[in-house]
Design a protein around this nucleic acid. Structure first.
Lengths: 197, 197
DNA sequence: TAATTTTTTTACTATTTCGCATAATATACA
DNA sequence: TGTATATTATGCGAAATAGTAAAAAAATTA
């Protein structure tokens, strides 16, 4: 990649986006001002506009970054392991993200985006797309698990997928509400038990 | 109730609170200004401060009102019916609330409060208390169902309760994201099937 | 070196927002 | 009738906020 023509940027796009994400994650979209973002990103406001567009575009870019990072972080679902083991890992990794910081922030997407979904149709569409994608991925996982005989035939893949994501949603909210990691671990464990039983 | 001394209020407290709730429900806490609230409540801002306190107190009052209204609206869980039937009703009523308006708003609590939970510890505590109360109510329901032989013994009450609330959380988010009522109905149906099987 | 391009930086405008001070109004009570 | 009380209504001022215009800076290219 050749260096472009004009004055070079003094910020790294990915890093700046990550810093913006952190602020949005803590304070929500509407609760965050551009000045706070500028401070966290070490950028002046005009540079933010130039690089990312307006506040909503920046927020949606953060949503997208988080989703990608989460998808890759949740680990592969298509190993030959027991389904219950795979789901245990899945939830454990999610909880790592949700309760990782000094104060647990829950899920950036499911805890901050819904509040904006009505006022910002594009954000609503983003949520819809992400939940659809997760449903699809999980459904495929359950179909494969059933086809390979690791899961009994009565377990309807779509329902199991939706139920699994429901647990994810609940962990997202509960961790932000401050429930302890051990409580959440137990809940995840029990849910996997019920889904795969 | 004796009429108090000074100039009478020209607003009904419950009604005004309901109108504030509607705005918060649509735009979220941080996305709502006191001027918008004042317009919706047909009150001047000083009257709001006088009657409800500051913005956060008003929001928390709305949270409480919604929770009470929801609890009473979700219907009694202690009939002698089949557990599956009772849960079907439970989710159907929740979806009535979540998708009821002209545009589906999802759950006021679970879709707007989490975004504020970090910046406003009292709101976080409110969420924690509400989810705890719902867990407790549902756990009692499953214990009773099991004790009366309407549910098989392998169904752990606490896990079933948490899983049921997880479905509630998911319906809350999904309805606000715009998933169709029939999709949500099917999901609820499948979930009840899996929990009570 | 000069021209071009892109970004940074500074500064500005218009609007929104909050909180408060003050005046006006409507009731109960003595 | 007059006083006390609680609310409504008006308006001000300071701060925050979003977005933009214009100048300055740092690089490439001719």
């Amino acid at each position: 990649m050749k260096r472009s023509r004009g004055r070079p940027r003094k910020f790294d796009t990915r890093e700046a986006l990550g810093q913006a994400l952190q602020v949005f994650w803590t304070k929500g979209y509407a609760g965050t001002s551009l000045d706070e973002l500028a401070a966290a990103m070490s950028m002046k406001r005009p540079s933010i506009y130039n690089a990312f567009g307006d506040k909503e575009a920046l927020y949606r870019a953060a949503l997208n970054a988080f989703q990608q990072q989460l998808v890759s972080g949740l680990g592969t679902l298509d190993s030959a392991d027991e389904p219950a083991k795979i789901l245990d890992r899945f939830f454990a990794r999610a909880l790592d993200v949700y309760t990782g910081g000094e104060t647990p922030l829950g899920c950036f997407i499911f805890c901050t985006a819904p509040a904006e979904a009505v006022a910002h149709p594009d954000v609503r569409a983003d949520i819809l797309e992400i939940t659809g994608k997760i449903d699809g991925t999980l459904k495929l996982f359950f179909e494969n698990a059933r086809a390979s005989g690791r899961l009994h035939g009565a377990c309807e893949p779509l329902v199991a997928a939706q139920l699994t994501q429901a647990v994810l949603h609940s962990l997202a909210l509960r961790s932000r509400a401050g429930q302890s990691r051990t409580t959440l671990n137990r809940m995840a464990r029990g849910a996997v038990e019920m889904i795969c039983r």
